[in-house]
Each structure stands twice: as C-alpha cells, then as structure tokens.
C-alpha cells in the first residue's frame, strides 16, 4: 500500500446520506479477479447515462452531466466530501479500490460504515470523521468557491481550509501508523507467529473439537 502523509487536493462534494458500496461500485464489476482498473466504474450508475458492463470502452459512454464528478470544476479531485453513514452495505473492498483508482485519497464524512472504514485504511485511503456542522460548512464552502481545496495532514490529524481554518480529527494509532508507512499488516502480524501458535496449543487443550475435523 502507498504511504499517505499529506493530501492537498480539490474537493468533490457528494451530497447524499447513506451512500452504499453497491452505488460506489455496482456488482457487475465485482467479477474481476484483479485489484485495479475499477476507477472508470466508480459510481457507475450515477456517472453514466447507459448501463455499464465489464470490458466496455468506458470513455465512449454517455456521461450524466448532472453527476458531480462529471462537472469540470471537480476534475482531478482527490478529496471526497460526503454525508453520514458513507460506505454502508456490502463489504466489497472493490469500493475503496475504485475510489483509489479514480484518484481519491481522502473521504470526509460525519460517519462511516465500519467495514468500509476499515477497508479504506488498508488501501491508502484516509477516512476522516468530522462533526456534522463542520461537514455542512465544508459543503457550503465547496459550493461557493470553484477549485476549492483542502489540506489533510495525517501526522497532525488536521484538515485545513484555504482561509487557514483547521479542524482536528481522530484516528486510532494503529491505522494511522499503517497508513503513514504503507505497511504490510500481514508481515507485522507474522512477527507474532509464536504467540499465535501458543494460543492454538492452549485452545486445542481447552476446546479440542475446534481442531478436529469431523464428518465431511
């Protein structure tokens, strides 16, 4: 995973609550066995006027001019501003893969669904939780000023507006560390392999049926 320290980028506002992962990346694109290439199908059903299928040349498809990501002022956005309960529903990691592939590195919302939040941090996307009033203020500022940018700094855990106003955010120490360093979590866990084996040995004494293959 790519390390993420500071992102200074254009903000794209997605003004609806409960955006689910089916909307972020529709099911037909989940048939891929790769981790990459999902960007053209991010928000596919909102972004295009036709029905999308894997393997199409997406550059030839009719765009929905009303969808926010199709508006020229948000071109090149790397920060997505969203409403409450963003990323609810399916656990598909294809959702953060699509956001990343499109170019997003930060999603700001008043709240996130748990699995999506977790999946983001494993793919170099920083989910930032800010209070509802702050998010509302950022929506207003984004609407008022074409080319509106924010600076999101992970080491200091702050979001800074063009006028210099700063908002702090929380993130747990482990996720922060992993994002900052682009760490391979599996490698870190395997450093504790002896402890995993010790647990298994103890558990096999206490609950032997969990380690005995019956029947099938």
């Amino acid at each position: 995973m790519e390390p993420l320290k500071q992102i200074d980028g254009i903000v794209a506002p997605l003004d609806r609550a409960n955006v689910d992962t089916d909307a972020i990346i529709p099911k037909q694109f989940l048939k891929s066995i790769k981790r990459t290439g999902f960007g053209p199908n991010l928000f596919d059903e909102w972004r295009y006027l036709d029905h999308g299928e894997p393997g199409q040349d997406h550059s030839q498809r009719p765009l929905n001019p009303d969808f926010v990501l199709n508006q020229p002022r948000y071109e090149g956005a790397s920060i997505l501003l969203a409403r409450r309960n963003f990323g609810c529903g399916s656990s598909r990691e294809h959702a953060p893969w699509a956001l990343f592939d499109y170019g997003f590195r930060v999603v700001i919302a008043p709240s996130f669904a748990d699995i999506f939040f977790n999946n983001c941090t494993k793919n170099g996307i920083l989910p930032v939780v800010l209070p509802e009033e702050t998010v509302q203020k950022l929506f207003e500022e984004t609407a008022a000023e074409p080319g509106y940018r924010l600076t999101v700094d992970l080491p200091s855990q702050t979001v800074t507006t063009p006028s210099g106003e700063g908002f702090g955010f929380d993130i747990d120490a482990f996720r922060r560390h992993a994002l900052l360093n682009g760490l391979d979590e599996i490698g870190l866990t395997l450093e504790h392999a002896d402890e995993i084996r010790a647990y298994e040995a103890r558990r096999a004494r206490e609950a032997p049926w969990l380690f005995t293959r019956s029947g099938a």
Partner: peptide, 15 residues
C-alpha cells in the same frame, strides 16, 4: 464480514 485484505490476513495468519 470482512474485506479482501482481511480475507488474505485471515488466510495467512488465522488472525
């Protein structure tokens, strides 16, 4: 439920 990174983590480490 978990994402694919965690599927890989569980496969590789059982944790």
């Amino acid at each position: 439920g978990i994402g694919t990174s965690e599927v890989e983590h569980a496969l590789a480490t059982q944790t």
